[in-house]
Design a protein around this nucleic acid. Structure first.
Lengths: 241, 241
DNA sequence: TCAATAGTGTCTTTTAGACAATATTGC
DNA sequence: GCAATATTGTCTAAAAGACACTATTGA
């Protein structure tokens, strides 16, 4: 085994360590991902995930939150409240043609509303549909695919879906989040029964019911509960064969 | 956003990138983890996870497989067949007191039998019970805890448990793997019904049945099936409250 | 009135959990 | 025979799925 004691940090060409952010939202019944347009080679003009270098004195998680605030134009306080989760690390030697870059990818889920009005560099950040997205720089298409897999799986046994919803939301909105992420239709009464029967998933919020589109009965409002995981899970409908 | 184009790799003190391996096995009904004893400061004399530096031209995954082969004394071919999975990356600035080290942790599951007879550096590698383990160097206790959480969760909806079993195993052995990892007792008839009803989880193997301890009816042998995930999942018994 | 969405109730099928009963081995 | 483990079977409880039905809004 190698040991760090025997290692001279300057003996090798150094590794660069970056974070990449796969920031998702649901708008108009479609999953969107936050992308920026690259101005320089390689991949000049291509779309890419936001991200940046981990600074010498910060953790990857801190770097991810810092970049997230910068890219979305949110305050640090708001960004701190967003759901941010480490996805995995990508370290193929040639994933960046210029130098050795190891990137820690993070997934963030944000409610549908806020535009990525960027302070600073984020002016070119834009929501793009996660399906039918353009060609992406580096291995970013892979990162997005991995992130979508992870999100879809976590929807089954965690309360993660509420991270896509505003503070107060209707069960119809929550159901649409599930349907969008999973790409399936769910039965409304059964979904409702299941969600309400899961302790800590959602809790009712008092006040005037909200109308969804103007038409139809106004729906009751709920907010995210205190639970983090679902017991029992909310399983994706299976493709029986 | 920072961009690698504007980055001088030698401007900062470089990052070192390592892999840490949390290698587990089940023996005698207890979960064990492969540890090495450190010979040098910091943490001289303490136990630590095996691992090492990612070389300039290899991916973290390749480094993990290389280190795994070295530490366990297995051939590259055997090591390639073991279950190896990226856990997460640890990047706190002071996790190593000497320098900035970002470590990509991997989890490996191996069948109970093989001793870590090490070629080379691995002579000091040893299986230790995962509970009641000694104090560990760096943040390795945290890594082991994260790995155990992940394994326990994945047991619910994947076929991962068979990775702890030899090529041919009995349902009783598989059940004991579940019971060890989850720390619960399972009902044998129900476990059996569930496993056999899940397509692709296990498949029967012909040949003489094996006796477990000499006493009792010999059990039929099975091998791992072709499925990777369980549908529907095999849920951990819930602590109802 | 109708269209549209929210919400309730009910029935059936599936799955999980508890546990009795039988089978096959070593001693 | 008995102890120990494997295996089958049965009954019950819980959950999922399908779907009819009612409720409340805007036009």
């Amino acid at each position: 085994m190698n040991d760090a004691t025997t290692y001279d940090p300057h003996a090798f060409e150094p590794f660069a360590v970056t974070v990449d952010l796969a920031v998702f939202t649901v708008r108009e019944g479609r999953l969107h991902v936050l992308l920026i347009r690259r101005g320089q080679d390689p991949y000049a003009g291509a779309w890419a995930l936001p991200g940046g270098f981990v600074l010498p004195r910060e953790s990857a998680e801190s770097a991810a939150r810092r970049e997230l605030a910068e890219e979305t134009g949110l305050s640090r306080e708001s960004a701190a409240a967003l759901h941010l989760e480490q996805l995995r690390t990508y370290s193929e030697p040639d994933r960046d043609p210029r130098m050795r870059v190891v990137s820690v990818a993070y997934t963030a889920l944000v409610p549908g509303l806020p535009e990525p009005r960027g302070g600073g560099d984020a002016a070119h950040a834009q929501w793009m549909p996660a399906d039918g997205a353009p060609a992406l720089a580096f291995d970013h298409a892979r990162i997005i695919a991995d992130a979508r897999d992870r999100i879809g799986a976590k929807f089954e046994y965690t309360c993660l879906a509420t991270a896509f919803c505003p503070r107060a939301f209707t069960l119809g909105e929550l159901q649409q989040v599930y349907e969008t992420v999973w790409g399936v239709e769910l039965d409304r009464p059964n979904f409702r029964r299941k969600v309400l029967a899961t302790p800590g998933f959602v809790e009712p919020v008092e006040g005037a019911p909200r109308r969804t589109g103007g038409r139809g009965k106004p729906a009751a409002l709920y907010r995210a509960g205190t639970a983090a995981t679902l017991h029992p899970p909310l399983l994706r409908p299976q493709r029986r064969f």
